[in-house]
Design a protein around this nucleic acid. Structure first.
Lengths: 211, 211
DNA sequence: ATCCGAATACTCGGAACCGAGCGATTGGAG
DNA sequence: CTCCAATCGCTCGGTTCCGAGTATTCGGAT
């Protein structure tokens, strides 16, 4: 009955909000802008709706508080938030927890790979090659950006380690994709009988649509 | 009546449902059971609520259809579903799409790593070591299970590639975690001044806090 | 002076998600 | 034969999520 003070917030975007408030008080709209400027929208899913929800929750559980609501010009009002002592402590606790405890994630590619059989050897190889190509591209972009930031000086490596991690994981994925593609084309990964007829037949004539 | 026939289903659990129906018609409860038996709940988030939602959606967009509703003994009725021709085609299309197109994922660890600074060098190293340990453990379990399944004969490699992928990714993560931990303890990853005082002080005494 | 597009700041309501619960049933233990 | 625990199969309704929309203002090109 008492407005569920549920003492938990699962949305990682909350962490981003707390992180920003560690630097200085701001209002939601600016948070979104900053996160995007810094490319942190690769790390957190920044959607306006969720952002305002998260901020409200954070306020309810008293990890942050409204500091003032100002109006610049005759623009919509904006509410500026700052963290509380509790919020600062919980921020650290949250990070610690996330680092220590591997969470169950359900990446879509994992699901897709589970049904690779459905594409048939040729279809699978083709699709995998396209993925590889795309991964290579975004990998190149990220690497370049990373280098730019580091060499251009003013950001210590610590603030950029998450990119190193992201790159590592992409490399691993790419490596695997390339290997499995090779295994398919060389026949080292075989398509068992039942599957061969299975689904692939369907995809050859989708009726009303092609390519 | 334009009951939004929204022609899309994003929840990957839908893929699992279609996958099961490729084998033979079933009812939702059995789907959940089967998925768990086969350990596919490592790949798909199997929650009853969502399952029934997904099945309903799948039915609405006519990728599957109810085949009959039977009652065994005087147990609750169960509705048995089967795929439609459309469903079979879309299943393949969906897999193809998921393989080709890397999706934006937002793993929690990535978020956590972004704020590693907050833990201070010692805290970060400690947390990372714990993670490493846990990852090592689940890696061992998965590897063992994988070997068991393969050696025990009756499952072709194709049906198990997703495990190979999962293992690869875990190895990559573990490798990175170990390296970065080493970089921290050897001082190769430095904690810049501003951060040192920053937050770590807070976590030392959750009470009132000075600094 | 006027128009237009970008930026500012947030709201709103529908969609998706998911776990607790429910009402029954079967299979043993005693 | 009776009782309890486990299984069966599903529903319900509260969160959480999120993108389209709203209403305003600023800056610059015409």
């Amino acid at each position: 009955m008492s407005t569920s003070n549920s003492r938990v917030l699962s949305n990682p975007l909350g962490l981003a909000v707390l992180g920003l408030l560690m630097e200085s008080p701001t209002h939601p709209h600016a948070m979104a802008a900053t996160l995007r400027e810094r490319g942190m929208d690769r790390v957190f899913k920044v959607t306006t709706g969720s952002l305002y929800d998260v901020v409200r929750t954070l306020q309810r559980i008293e990890w942050i508080e409204a500091r003032e609501t100002v109006r610049v010009g005759a623009r919509p009002e904006r509410t500026i938030y700052q963290h509380t002592a509790l919020g600062r402590a919980e921020f650290v606790r949250w990070v610690d927890e996330l680092v220590r405890t591997p969470a169950d994630e359900y990446p879509k590619f994992l699901a897709a790979v589970s049904y690779l059989g459905a594409l048939g050897p040729d279809g699978a190889a083709a699709a995998l090659r396209e993925r590889a190509e795309r991964v290579r591209t975004s990998l190149a972009e990220i690497r370049q950006e990373h280098r730019r930031v580091l060499e251009a000086g003013e950001v210590p490596r610590l603030f950029v380690v998450e990119t190193e991690y992201a790159v590592r994981m992409l490399e691993a994925e790419l490596g695997w994709v390339e290997e499995i593609t090779a295994d398919i084309t060389t026949g080292r990964l075989a398509w068992p009988e039942p599957v061969t007829g299975w689904i692939h037949t369907e995809s050859r004539h989708p009726g009303t649509e092609e390519r």
